[in-house]
């Protein structure tokens, strides 16, 4: 039930943004089609099941978005410095980090955030370890690398998704 209503809400938001209006004769067909799609497609999916809707988690979502965007800007300055400097300062390698997150959606968000932050790219996920291509390897032990890469996002995602 929770999954179906979340999918329905997402589809309705996309429909309203696409049409850019609130007229009733556009909203009603959209609502009917979104209901049909969410009932047909989402009988077994459990991707949003761990999501919480407390005020604290909503506040943390916005803090998370802010931190994410600042990190995106930082990573681009880093990339620009590496690309434009003549000696090409890279020392690449694949390191392993551990995560404590259990839910699938939180893991997807964590992998996406790792990809868009300075110098790291998720290559593979096996059980609870992520394999990360790092453009300038500083630590290759699991605990220290986890501390450097994962922890700043993990503490927010843990509150939002549990």
């Amino acid at each position: 039930m929770k999954n179906i209503s979340i999918i329905f809400l997402i589809l309705m938001i996309v429909w309203v943004l696409l049409n850019n209006t609130f007229q009733l004769n556009i909203l009603i067909p959209g609502a009917i089609i979104a209901l049909i799609i969410s009932l047909l497609m989402c009988r077994r999916c459990d991707i949003f099941a761990e999501m919480k809707f407390t005020p604290k988690s909503i506040a943390y979502t916005f803090i998370y978005l802010g931190i994410f965007f600042i990190d995106l800007l930082k990573s681009n300055m880093d990339v620009t410095r590496r690309v434009l400097s003549p000696s090409l300062p890279i020392r690449p390698g694949i390191v392993e980090v551990k995560t404590k997150l259990k839910s699938k959606f939180a893991r997807m968000l964590l992998a996406n955030s790792i990809t868009l932050t300075p110098g790291t790219l998720t290559v593979d996920v096996k059980e609870d370890s992520f394999f990360i291509h790092w453009i300038y390897v500083e630590e290759d032990e699991i605990e220290k690398a986890s501390e450097k890469i994962v922890e700043k996002f993990e503490k927010y995602l843990e509150v939002i998704y549990g």
């Binding site: 995106l72 681009n76 890279i90 990809t115 110098g119 790219l121």
Partner: peptide, 13 residues
């Protein structure tokens, strides 16, 4: 892999 790093970050931003 390094091309993917640069390509993803810079083109997204």
């Amino acid at each position: 892999y390094n091309r993917l790093q640069v390509g993803t970050k810079a083109s997204t931003l």
